[in-house]
């Protein structure tokens, strides 16, 4: 059994108005594996993703990253975890439009006071890793959807996080480009041992991952 890098214990999230999005979710994400959380719309997968990404706090329950419990009342610690332990890949790519591909990849390191040369070298290497070494000076508006998502993957990897959270990473792409992106994720996962947690409503994607968790109505099936 692989080492667990991310774990939740009886996670509950109740929104104002009494809607319970998560009803005691306990999951384990193995290190260096590709795990998928599969669920339909309203199953609670986005809520789970936000809590794991330290963007939202659970009503009760616990989250462990590298075995250390996350204190959701410690804002500075949450920012630190977002900066160093979590990488985000969004469905809509969410690149900063006025920054070039290279600058977008460097962007997270700006907040952790890394020297410029280190940032640039690291970002260039990652752009090459996702096959976009020749597109570094291009702006998001000049890139295709697939290219933008590759830049977003490179950005998620730049701080060498414990886990990359990918929220419907192929949701805005055609099937061929989606396959390319999933191939890229798999390749990085296999070759570099990066842990990926992919949230999707696409049950077919479950066949392409090492481990899958199905959410339904706020609970794990």
């Amino acid at each position: 059994m692989a080492e667990t890098i991310l774990e939740t214990v009886r996670l509950v999230r109740t929104y104002a108005g009494g809607v319970q999005a998560l009803k005691g979710v306990s999951i384990q994400v193995p290190k260096s594996k590709c795990t998928a959380i599969i669920g339909k719309s309203g199953s609670g997968k986005s809520t789970l993703m936000n809590i794991l990404g330290c963007l939202d706090a659970p009503t009760s329950g616990e989250v462990f990253i590298r075995g250390v419990p996350v204190d959701y009342t410690d804002t500075a610690r949450l920012i630190d975890l977002r900066r160093n332990e979590i990488g985000f890949v969004f469905q809509q790519f969410n690149l900063i439009p006025h920054l070039s591909a290279q600058e977008n990849v460097e962007y997270p390191l700006l907040f952790s006071y890394r020297p410029e040369k280190e940032r640039k070298d690291h970002a260039s290497a990652l752009l090459a890793r996702v096959g976009l070494e020749h597109r570094g000076s291009h702006y998001p508006g000049e890139l295709s959807g697939g290219e933008q998502q590759r830049v977003a993957i490179a950005r998620a990897l730049i701080s060498e996080p414990a886990v990359v959270l990918a929220d419907e990473p192929t949701g805005n792409l055609d099937s061929r480009t989606s396959d390319d992106i999933l191939d890229l994720i798999h390749e990085i996962n296999r070759k570099e041992g990066t842990t990926f947690l992919i949230v999707t409503h696409d049950a077919d994607l479950g066949d392409r991952v090492d481990h899958q968790i199905t959410l339904h109505d706020g609970g794990v099936i």
Binding site: L55, I79, R82, R83, F111, S112
Partner: peptide, 16 residues
């Protein structure tokens, strides 16, 4: 708004 949210998700603090 979205861009600011993304920036915060990527590790920017309120001060940044």
């Amino acid at each position: 708004t979205r861009e600011i949210g993304i920036t915060m998700a990527l590790g920017a603090s309120q001060r940044h």
